[in-house]
Every structure is written in C-alpha cells, then in structure tokens.
C-alpha cells in the first residue's frame, strides 16, 4: 500500500518536557487511522507536526511525500484539518463559508460553485444554504465542516476529536462521511475519546505519556491484550495521566 504518512523516530521536546518520544508509524492511502490517548498523551502535538504547524525536534517525517522540515508550506496545501474547536464562521452563511474556504485553497470559482451544489445534495442543505452557520445544530456544523475540510481533495484529512458532544445519530452520519471519503482515496487520520469509534478505524495507535504503546487493527489489539473491547485495551495500556 502506498504510504502517505511515514514517521521514523518523530520526537518533539518543549524544554525538558518530551511531548512526542520517538514515534514511528506509517499510514497508507485511503486508510482510516485512529490515534487514541489520554489528555496530554501527545496526540495534538503529533497532529500539529504532521500538519506543518510545529517543527519536530528530530526524526524523519514525510507527509504526502513531502518533508515536514523543508516543505511545511506545501504540505499545508495537500492536507485538510478539522478540530473540535475549529468552527466555520458563525456569522457567515453556509455558502459564504464554502466559498471562503474554497478560495483559501485556490479553487476556481466554477469548481467552488459545482462543489457547493454537490455538498448541498449530499448534506441536503440547499433549502437553507443562506442560513447563518450560527443558527445550525452542532452536529450539523461538524458534518459541514468536515465536508469543507476535504473539499480541495487533500491527500490526508486530520480530524481532532471531530464528534465530541455530537448526538448518536449525527455521529454515525459523520462516520458514514468518513468512510465515503476514505473510499475515495483520502486518508483519514482521526483522534477520538469515543472508544466505539476506535472500533470503526482500520488501524489504531494508542499513545501514553508521549510514546506509542500499541499499533494495529482493533481486532488484533483486542486479541493481543485479551480484551473484549478497545475500551478495555485502552484502560490496560493508558496509564492515568501524571498531573
């Protein structure tokens, strides 16, 4: 399988604090890859390095075939990013948001218009396309925000706790979107606190205290740790956070 992320000994130190300690992993094209870990385990740091937002202290890391040290700006054009706190502009309408983000990634006007219509069909929002984002229910915003994050057909989309606080039904619709996106060849890199969602990933990686403790498919990990669910695996591996 073609690798879109390759990390060898990825390390990031903040002063004497080691946020990422020699992480080695790779993610294939079109894969749904889950990163799990307690708060403060180093997940956000790892994602920021791969997005070209943080410079790693050491290690060899390529994202979409590009080097994170030298080609950070080019990487940003080839990835999509959506976080739980990332929100669309609440005071702009759905269409205005789509146009804005399309513009950021340099999509031509006619592509933006076509994409808007495609999205409208898929998410069924044509009727309310001129509503302000602020007036939409939270789950709905998450779906739209995800669709916008992959609008420019990136190689990889990073999702940082995308479904936090979303209702069960919308959460499942969100995962439908993830599966469809992955089927189109876009790699999905996701972090979550919902352990049932970890089961939906093709492979998961569990981090604790800045290190990778386990990587593998949910089924393999459950077998390896003799656990009934990923939740149990997680509790066995992830030590309680130290402060």
């Amino acid at each position: 399988m073609e690798k879109v992320i390759e990390a060898v000994d990825m390390t990031k130190k903040f002063g004497s604090f080691v946020a990422n300690d020699s992480l080695t992993f790779n993610v294939g094209r079109g894969e749904i890859f889950g990163l799990l870990g307690a708060n403060g385990a180093g997940k956000t740091t790892a994602i920021r390095i791969m997005c070209g937002l943080l410079r790693p202290t050491s290690g060899k890391i390529t994202v979409a075939g590009m080097n994170v040290y030298r080609q950070a700006e080019r990487i940003k054009r080839r990835i999509g990013y959506m976080s739980q706190s990332f929100s669309l502009y609440e005071d702009l309408t759905i269409l205005e948001n789509i146009r804005f983000y399309g513009g950021i990634y340099g999509l031509p006007e006619r592509v933006i218009r076509r994409k808007s219509q495609e999205l409208a069909e898929k998410l069924d929002f044509w009727r309310i396309r001129n509503s302000l984002i602020g007036s939409l229910p939270p789950g709905w915003k998450q779906k739209l925000s995800f669709s916008i994050a992959v609008m420019h057909r990136p190689d990889i989309v990073f999702l940082d706790e995308p479904t936090s606080g979303v209702d069960p039904d919308t959460r499942r619709q969100f995962w439908d979107l993830i599966y469809e996106t992955a089927a189109e060849g876009i790699t999905v890199f996701v972090t979550t606190h919902y352990m049932d969602e970890a089961e939906y990933c093709e492979r998961v990686c569990i981090m604790a205290d800045g290190r990778i403790e386990a990587t593998g498919s949910p089924a393999d990990l459950k077998e390896l740790y003799g656990a009934g669910s990923i939740d149990d695996v997680f509790v066995k591996i992830a030590r309680p956070p130290r402060g």
């Binding site: 385990a41 739980q84 706790e161 606080g165 309680p240």
Partner: peptide, 14 residues
C-alpha cells in the same frame, strides 16, 4: 455539567 466531556476513558472511570 459535562464534567467528563473531552476527558479520556481512564480519567472518566476514576
């Protein structure tokens, strides 16, 4: 109110 939101599974158990 939402005391366990965004908190990892281990801390939630505790």
């Amino acid at each position: 109110d939402e005391s366990t939101t965004g908190v990892d599974a281990v801390s939630r158990r505790e």
